[in-house]
């Protein structure tokens, strides 16, 4: 081995193979520690909350929780039938109201609107802002809408559905627009090149290709709506109800409540059995929301297409 190459080998040993890593100096480790701490703070608080609630409610994971109505006289068997079915009903009605409106509005903005026109830009900016409006404001708006439509009495299903639909409309519009935008321009050009109209191109190519994104966004929007309590209080769905809306159109004007509202009502009660039931119901609500998110993820994975 020549002297020069021996020196080179020594340099390599002292720099490349020194046994230390520059990524492991004090500052890097402190920074990494801070990142871990932030992560754990969020996760630990959430886990502690869920575990604590689950333990508190553990005595009440029984059939009566789902099949019984609320009762203060028999607090040990009080149930959330009205809230659970009310929430399911609300979700169905909200979806029927919000999805067609949201998807059509997004389709117009993406495929038909001329973005050079000032009014289209104003609409766009306002949509972004609407997504940030406090949910209680939508409750107030829904009261007005329902009164105009003709349901004077408060606390009816349709009122709650209108409030929740207004609430998630911006979310649906924004996510649908993103899904439509993700459809490659190639597909549109191919369709136009064959002599298809804008309507045919949108309806037969763009929207079918955007379905996974639209479905994901819609379900995430609905899972936000199912957890809302404030706008429903404003439209009068916060009171205790001992019935389930009738199936069909007639049910729209029936009084109803939602699971979050029922939990909120019970949380104010002093009887320990009722607090236990409320804890169990919170876990139930979490399971419903997780279930909806799981469906969203499944749809996304199943239908996602690589172009």
């Amino acid at each position: 081995m020549s002297a020069a190459s021996a020196v080179a080998a020594q340099v390599v040993t002292s720099t490349l193979a020194s046994g230390r890593s520059k990524d492991r100096d004090l500052r890097s480790i402190l920074f990494l520690g801070a990142l871990w701490l932030s992560l754990f703070f969020g996760v630990i608080v959430l886990v502690a909350l869920i575990v604590d609630t689950a333990i508190k409610g553990s005595g009440r994971f029984d059939k009566e929780l789902v099949t019984n109505y609320a009762s203060i006289i028999f607090p040990e068997t009080t149930g959330f039938k009205a809230g659970i079915f009310g929430s399911i009903w609300l979700m169905v009605c909200t979806a029927i109201l919000a999805i067609p409106l949201g998807v059509m509005a997004a389709t117009y903005l993406e495929e038909f609107a001329d973005t050079n026109r000032w009014w289209n830009r104003v609409i766009e900016i306002n949509l972004q802002n609407l997504a940030a409006v406090p949910s209680i404001v939508y409750g107030l708006l829904a009261v007005a809408v329902v009164a105009i439509v003709g349901f004077d009495e408060k606390g009816v299903l349709i009122g709650g559905a209108v409030a929740l639909a207004l609430l998630i409309l911006p979310v649906i519009i924004i996510t649908t627009r993103e899904a439509i935008r993700a459809v490659p321009q190639d597909i549109r050009q191919a369709s136009y090149g064959l002599g298809a109209t804008t309507w045919q191109t949108t309806w037969r190519q763009v929207l079918p290709s955007a379905v996974p994104g639209i479905a994901t966004g819609t379900i995430l929007g609905l899972s936000r709506a199912i957890g809302e309590a404030a706008p429903l209080i404003i439209v009068g769905l916060g009171v205790s109800v001992l019935s389930v809306p009738e199936p069909g159109i007639a049910g729209l004007s029936d009084s109803a409540t939602s699971l979050p509202n029922q939990i909120y009502n019970l949380a104010n009660q002093s009887r320990p059995e009722l607090a236990t039931a409320a804890s169990a119901a919170i876990i139930l609500l979490l399971v419903m929301i997780l279930g909806m998110n799981a469906i969203a993820i499944l749809i996304r994975n199943k239908f996602t297409r690589s172009w």
Partner: peptide
């Protein structure tokens, strides 16, 4: 223009079959 494209078809740079 839609009627024009029915008479004058087009093939693009990147193969773009429909899904």
């Amino acid at each position: 223009p839609i009627a024009v494209r029915q008479h004058i078809g087009m093939v693009f740079q990147k193969p773009n079959p429909f899904p």
